[in-house]
Every structure is written in C-alpha cells, then in structure tokens.
C-alpha cells in the first residue's frame, strides 16, 4: 500500500504514527503471554531450587502451610481431576444432546431464543455458582448421598458441569450445523430414522468439532477457581472419594493469596509452581482443541 501512496508523495507523518501505534497494540498481546511465562517460570525456578522436582512429583502429601512441610502435587492434582471428571460427566452428555436438539430438531425461532438463554449460563459469575453449590446443592445432595460432607467434590463438580454446558453445546452445535444437509437427506433416503441418521451419520461427520468442544470444556473445568474454592473445602487430600473435602490447584492458589504469606518464601513460590502446572495443562488442551477445530474448517466435507 505504501507504494501507491508514494506516487503522490511521502507518506504523511500521521499515517506513520497511526501505523506504529496499532502495531504496538497488536504486539502487546505477545508481551502478555511472555509475561505470564516469565513470571511463572522464574518463580517456579526459585521453588524447584529449594524443593526437588522429585519430591514435587513423588510425595503424596501437600502441606506447605504446616510445620511439617510436604510438597507433593498429587493431592491437588487428584482434587482437580476429580472435580473436572464430575463436571465432564455432567456437561458432556447434556451439552452434546442440547447441541443435537439445537442443530437437528429446533425450529429457527426456537434456536434464536434458546441459544442466548443458554449463553446466560456461561455469563453468571463463578462466585454465584459457588454460593449455589455450597448453600443449595450440597444440602440437597446430603439427603440422597450418605456420608456427604458439608464440603465435598461432588457438588462443586456438578455445578461446574452446569457452567460448562454452554461451551460444549455451542461449539458442538457449530460442528453439527456445518455437516452438509445432503448427508442427512442421503441417510433418510436409505430409510434411516432420525436416531440412526443423528448417531451414525451426523455425529461421526462432526466428531472433530465435538472433540474440540469437549477438550475446551475440560480446560475450563481445570482452570475454574471460585466454585471449588467456596464449596470443595480447601483440604488437599489424596482421594478419589467425591464425598469428602478436597482442594484443587486453583483453590490452593486462592487459599495462599487470602493469607499473609511473606513474599520470597518457599510457601509463596508454591503458588507459582502450581500455577505453572495449571498453565501447561490448560495450554496443551487449548492447543489440542484449536487444532481439532482447524481440521473441521479445513475438511468440512468428509
């Protein structure tokens, strides 16, 4: 473009200033990522200089705030995976079937109404879900589930699942909707019913997009903080029992931030080591999800 301008004369200074200002804005996002990586890695470096990575990965107790200190990540990891698994068990079937309804059966008018309604679920602040899990769902579940503690993994897991439904539903619906109608018509013409058409033809054709939505849902659940910080109990326990108090990686960071742990101590650095683990897990899942989605747009007709 600058070539064309040069026919008339030099590019005016205002053009050059504007161009560089916009470039700076665009490049800023790279500094944000670089900043995140630098902060997490440099602080974790300090942490691992004092605590060996073998203890971090080998010990089965996480008690940095106690007198008898152990730095084993496993209790936080199992806590995170447990709540994530419960959330996924709720969100995957619900989100997928909701997507099937929206894409295959809903009238255009119903779609126009139901989709934004579903989006409201994703917009509700997470403290609100935490309150709901602690004061409504847990007492309700205690009547049905014997031995359910006041703080547990089950109730926040279910509520997190509810929160993730719109993410799974919206991305899956995009994928299902992108399946060409000719495939459905072909199936109907061969005598298949809606059930067979949906599960033998449409869902398999959209499988990479559905996979992308599921993985993104997992990533959201792993990074979710307030629901578990409020309703799961902040007690790092190595267990897969959904009825007892646990702590997730995110809830631990909140717990330390609320206390007054002095800067520069090993206890202070633990939150960055945990944060680095969290960042890497979600990064891998996000990259996987976006590469699956790109495959969808590249090879829509399969």
């Amino acid at each position: 473009m600058s070539k064309d301008v040069s026919i008339i004369g030099r590019e005016p200074w205002s053009e050059r200033v504007a161009r560089s200002a916009f470039l700076v804005c665009g490049a800023l996002s790279i500094f944000v990522t670089a900043g995140i990586v630098f902060v997490l890695v440099s602080q974790s470096w300090g942490f691992f200089a004092e605590v060996s990575p073998w203890q971090f990965l080998g010990d089965t107790q996480w008690t940095p705030l106690f007198a008898d200190k152990h730095y084993g990540i496993w209790p936080l990891l199992t806590g995170t995976l447990l709540t994530t698994a419960i959330a996924a068990a709720v969100a995957l079937p619900t989100g997928l079937f909701a997507a099937i309804y929206l894409s295959e059966f809903a009238t255009p008018r119903a779609r126009q109404l139901l989709k934004p309604a579903l989006e409201v679920l994703a917009g509700v602040p997470t403290v609100v879900y935490g309150y709901f899990a602690l004061t409504f769902l847990t007492p309700l579940l205690q009547r049905v589930v014997p031995g359910l503690a006041g703080f547990n993994a089950l109730s926040p897991g279910i509520v997190m699942g509810l929160m993730i439904v719109p993410i799974v539903a919206s991305l899956s619906e995009d994928a299902l909707f992108a399946v060409p109608p000719s495939l459905r018509e072909g199936a109907y013409a061969l005598g298949a019913g809606r059930l067979a058409t949906t599960f033998r033809v449409v869902v398999p054709a959209a499988v990479s997009g559905i996979g992308a939505s599921v993985i993104l849902g997992f990533s959201r659940a792993i990074g979710e903080t307030m629901v578990v910080a409020i309703a799961a109990g902040q007690q790092p326990t190595l267990t897969l029992d959904p009825r007892v108090p646990i702590a997730t990686m995110t809830a631990y960071i909140v717990q330390v931030s609320l206390g007054d742990t002095p800067t520069g101590t090993t206890e202070y650095r633990t939150i960055f080591a945990v944060g680095l683990g969290l960042f890497l897990m979600t990064l891998v899942l996000n990259l996987l999800s976006s590469s699956l989605r790109r495959r969808l747009t590249a090879g829509g007709q399969s």
Partner: peptide
C-alpha cells in the same frame, strides 16, 4: 500476524487465576 492471532486465541483460554499471578508479580 499469524503468531499474534494464535497468541490471542490462546490467551482467551488461559485460566483467570493465572492472570492474577501475572498481575501480582508485574
């Protein structure tokens, strides 16, 4: 420009508490 685009897409998926850690140090 592809790097910036990929980067922004990934930033949208970073858990919010990680931004808290960045804000704390930065």
């Amino acid at each position: 420009s592809r790097l910036i685009e990929l980067n922004i897409a990934n930033l949208a998926g970073v858990p919010s508490i990680i931004y808290g850690l960045l804000g704390l140090e930065l």
